[in-house]
């Protein structure tokens, strides 16, 4: 992890012991880190230091975490990982719809936190090396957008139009957790219960096709929230 050593992580968290835990973890794993105890300080630190990733607690003393996301998104695309202590999925969904990239639920393990950071950094690296390429490559998966084809290990994948649309949507937002609503609205323009059921079926068959020819798990399910393509 040569890159991780240089990455700067900003933690916006009011609880001192959780903040300590995160900072200790970051220090131990050679990240550079900054921390803010409230939203206002967090936003100003984000603006002045341009961190690579922001870890944001949703329950801040001075302002709602969603507001912080909206503020930062108005001027920057810095990846935001939300830390939520709230048990309701709806909070996470709101945060994701407001522009957060991923989330982690308290209580979380150190391994889980590090895994999220790694995934996000890999994605950042990928984005910086040319996001707008006509050809997308992730592990064994290769998508040729202009040709409208996808192949795995050099073998063409036989996808239905809906499966292909799904794959493109996920790959163009690699690393981001996409909510069910976001996906169904992008694919079918609506988000009814029947759309959700269709989404599950297509996602299952798409995943089967992807996993049959590869050792990697490309698509991660977030129960009650959505799906995410992982950068291998």
């Amino acid at each position: 992890m040569s890159n991780a050593g240089k990455a700067l992580i900003l933690t916006i968290e009011d609880d001192r012991s959780v903040s300590n835990l995160i900072n200790t973890t970051l220090k131990l794993h050679d990240y550079r880190y900054l921390s803010a105890a409230d939203g206002t300080q967090g936003i100003s630190l984000a603006a002045s230091n341009q961190p690579d990733i922001i870890l944001l607690d949703l329950g801040l003393p001075d302002m709602d975490g969603i507001k912080v996301i909206e503020n930062i998104r108005s001027w920057s695309q810095i990846p935001i990982i939300v830390i939520s202590a709230r048990s309701e999925d709806s909070d996470k969904i709101h945060a994701l719809d407001a522009g957060a990239d991923d989330y982690i639920t308290k209580p979380f393990s150190v391994d889980e936190l590090l895994a999220r950071l790694r995934v996000t950094l890999r994605r950042l690296q990928y984005m910086s090396t040319g996001t707008h390429d006509a050809v997308f490559v992730n592990g064994d998966l290769k998508i040729d957008y202009p040709a409208g084809t996808a192949e795995l290990n050099g073998t063409e994948l036989h996808l239905t139009p809906n499966e292909y649309k799904l794959l493109c949507l996920l790959s163009r937002n690699i690393g981001k957790v996409l909510t069910h609503k976001f996906i169904t609205q992008n694919i079918w323009g609506s988000s009814w219960d029947s759309d959700l059921a269709s989404l599950r079926v297509y996602m299952t068959s798409l995943r089967k096709k992807l996993e049959a020819g590869s050792e990697y798990t490309y698509i991660r399910t977030h129960v009650g929230i959505g799906y995410q393509m992982v950068k291998i």
Partner: peptide, 28 residues
Amino acid sequence: LLSVTKLEDGSSSCLHKSAELINDIVTE
């Protein structure tokens, strides 16, 4: 306990039901 508090009002109104694939649930 969180699940219990969700259920304790005796109705299923606190459940966020939607069409789920049983296999997805088991795998997760």
